Simulated scan of single mutants.
Amino acid sequence: MGTDLPGPDAVSLSTILSPRVANLLGRVGIDTVGQLVVYSASDLTGMTQVGQLTIAEIITALAEHNRALAPDPTVASGATLVERHRALLEQQSKLLALLQRIAVHPRTPKTVRGDIDEVMGQLDTTLSLEQAALVARQHP
């Protein structure tokens, strides 16, 4: 019978970081190593109260678990995670606006309107709106 130990990505940040840093990251929804390693140091330093000492603590703690932050973007690698997320939210907003325009157009068949209304009613954009607000506060 094997033990069900969590993988390295499931490790809670509260077990490897100081309470201040773990709480700071937790407030923006980063609670595990797996959630943290998708961010670069540039992404994190854009957050409120994250400076070089915080980054150093994070890098050290991740290294002790054979993990690392995502590489910082360069001209060759493209946009940061925050920039990519902002672009994705803008695309989502444009798509929703387009669907709404199609749904109210007089020549749109009623069945299509019903389908659009049903899909729009099932969409949960709460997290996306929260993330957009967070990005807006951190990167005006």
Rank of each mutant, 00 (worst) to 15 (best):
Q100R: 14
L129Q: 12
L88D: 15
A97G: 04
L96F: 10
N23K: 08
P71E: 05
Q91R: 14
M47G: 04
A70N: 06
R20V: 05
I30C: 01
L123E: 07
Q49E: 14
G26I: 03
T111E: 08
P19I: 03
G2Y: 14
L81W: 05
R67W: 03
A136C: 10
Q52V: 11
R107A: 11
D43R: 01
Q92I: 10
Q35E: 10
A97N: 06
G29F: 04
L81Q: 06
T48Y: 14
G34A: 04
D124C: 04
A61P: 00
R20K: 08
L53A: 14
V75R: 12
Q100L: 11
A136N: 12
Q91T: 09
S18I: 03
A22K: 01
A63H: 05
T108C: 07
S77V: 05
A79V: 02
H85I: 15
G51F: 05
T80H: 05
D115T: 13
T74Y: 01
E118P: 09
A68H: 11
L134G: 02
L36N: 01
A79P: 04
L25G: 00
L98D: 11
R86E: 08
V11P: 01
S14P: 05
V135N: 06
P6F: 06
T108E: 06
K94Y: 06
G34E: 02
T126S: 08
D4N: 15
I59Y: 02
A56Q: 09
A132D: 03
L25Y: 00
V11M: 07
L127P: 05
T126L: 04
L81T: 11
V135D: 08
L99N: 02
A136M: 15
A97Q: 06
Q92E: 12
V21Y: 00
G114T: 07
S18Q: 09
V28P: 01
T74D: 01
T45M: 09
L129R: 10
H85Y: 13
L5S: 15
H65L: 05
E57T: 02
R67K: 13
D31M: 11
D72V: 10
L127K: 09
A10M: 13
S12N: 14
T126H: 09
L88F: 15
V11A: 05
R20Y: 08
Q52W: 08
R113E: 00
N66K: 15
I55W: 01
P73A: 11
I59A: 07
V119A: 13
G34M: 03
G46M: 04
A61I: 01
T108G: 03
L81V: 07
I16C: 02
A136I: 10
L99K: 04
A22F: 00
R27W: 08
A68C: 10
V82T: 10
A79M: 05
K110P: 04
P8I: 10
S42W: 12
D72L: 07
R101Q: 10
I102A: 08
T60E: 11
A63C: 07
T60Y: 08
A136F: 13
L88A: 12
L17I: 01
D117I: 13
V21N: 00
Q138A: 12
Q92N: 08
S12Y: 15
Q92F: 03
V119Q: 12
G7C: 14
L127R: 09
H105Q: 03
A133N: 10
I58P: 00
E90K: 11
V104L: 07
S40Q: 02
A87F: 04
L36V: 02
V38S: 15
Q122I: 04
V37H: 02
R101P: 03
P140C: 13
